[in-house]
C-alpha cells in the first residue's frame, strides 16, 4: 500500500484520524501557549516591578524551567499530578487511584515551560518601550490601568510578536512529547497507525509533513501579524 492511499480520507484510510490528531496537537499546544501567556505576563510584571524576593523567585523560575528537559516536566505533571489527586481523593472519601488526563497534564506542562520563555519575551518587549511615552501618559493624568491598556499593552504586544512566534514553535514541538502520557495527538496517532499497519515510515513521514505544514503556516501568520502591528512604525 502506498503512503498516499494509506493516508486517504475515506473509511479505509488513516487520513481523517491523522487530521483529527493534528487538531488535538494544535489544541494542546494552544492551551499550553495561552496558559503560558498568562504566566509569562504575570512573571514579567514581577520581574519588572516586584520586590527583591519576588524578583529572585521569578528569576529562579525562568532559570530552572529553561534548564530542565521538557520531558521531565511533563512526567512531573502527569505522574505527580495523579499522585496528588489520588492523595486528595483519599482524604475526601474512599480514594483509590485518580489519574490526570494527558491533555490537562500536557497543557499545564507546556504552559509552565512556555511561561518561562514568554516572561523573558514580555520583559524584553517592555524595555523596548519609549520611556517618554509612559511619562507623557502619566503627565496627562492617566491612571495605571488606563496607561496599561492604552499605552503599554499594545506596544509590548507589538514588540513581543517575533519572540512569541518562536515560543509558539517551541510549544508546538513540545506537544509531541505529550504523546508519552497516552494522549492521542499527532505523534501518538502515527504510532498507533504504524503499529496496526506495520508501515511506520509512512506514518511518521505523514506526521512530519503535518508538523511541517503547521509550523510553516504559523510562522507565516506571525510574520503577517508582525508586519500588521509594525505598520505605524518607521523602519530604520
Amino acid at each position: 500500500m502506498s503512503t498516499l492511499s494509506l493516508m486517504s480520507l475515506g473509511s479505509d484510510g488513516w487520513g481523517l484520524a491523522m487530521l483529527v490528531a493534528a487538531g488535538v496537537t494544535l489544541s494542546v499546544a494552544s492551551c499550553g501557549f495561552l496558559l503560558g501567556s498568562v504566566i509569562g505576563g504575570l512573571v514579567a510584571w514581577v520581574k519588572l516591578s516586584g520586590g527583591a524576593v519576588a524578583r529572585a523567585a521569578a528569576d529562579a523560575y525562568t532559570t530552572i524551567l529553561r534548564g530542565i528537559p521538557d520531558l521531565l516536566i511533563i512526567y512531573l505533571f502527569y505522574f505527580g499530578g495523579s499522585a496528588l489527586l489520588s492523595s486528595i481523593a483519599g482524604l475526601l472519601g474512599p480514594g483509590g487511584f485518580v489519574g490526570v488526563s494527558g491533555f490537562a497534564a500536557g497543557a499545564t506542562a507546556i504552559g509552565i515551560i512556555s511561561g518561562a520563555y514568554q516572561s523573558e519575551v514580555f520583559r524584553g518587549a517592555y524595555t523596548a518601550l519609549n520611556r517618554g511615552e509612559i511619562e507623557a501618559a502619566k503627565s496627562v493624568g492617566m491612571h495605571r490601568a488606563l496607561m496599561f491598556r492604552r499605552i503599554i499593552a499594545p506596544q509590548v504586544l507589538r514588540y513581543a510578536i517575533p519572540g512569541l512566534g518562536n515560543v509558539w514553535q517551541l510549544a508546538l514541538k513540545e506537544s509531541a512529547l505529550v504523546s508519552v502520557t497516552g494522549l492521542v495527538e499527532l505523534l501518538r496517532q502515527s504510532a498507533i497507525g504504524a503499529g496496526s499497519t506495520r508501515e511506520p515510515f509512512s506514518f511518521y513521514l505523514a506526521a512530519a509533513v503535518l508538523y511541517l505544514a503547521i509550523t510553516t503556516v504559523s510562522s507565516w501568520g506571525f510574520r503577517r501579524a508582525e508586519s500588521y502591528a509594525m505598520r505605524g512604525v518607521r523602519r530604520t
Binding site: L172, K173, L187
Partner: peptide, 13 residues
C-alpha cells in the same frame, strides 16, 4: 518538525 518525530522516523520508521 519535532525532534521526537525525527527520532521515531529513524528508529521505528
Amino acid at each position: 518538525t519535532p525532534l521526537l518525530v525525527q527520532i521515531f522516523l529513524i528508529y521505528y520508521g
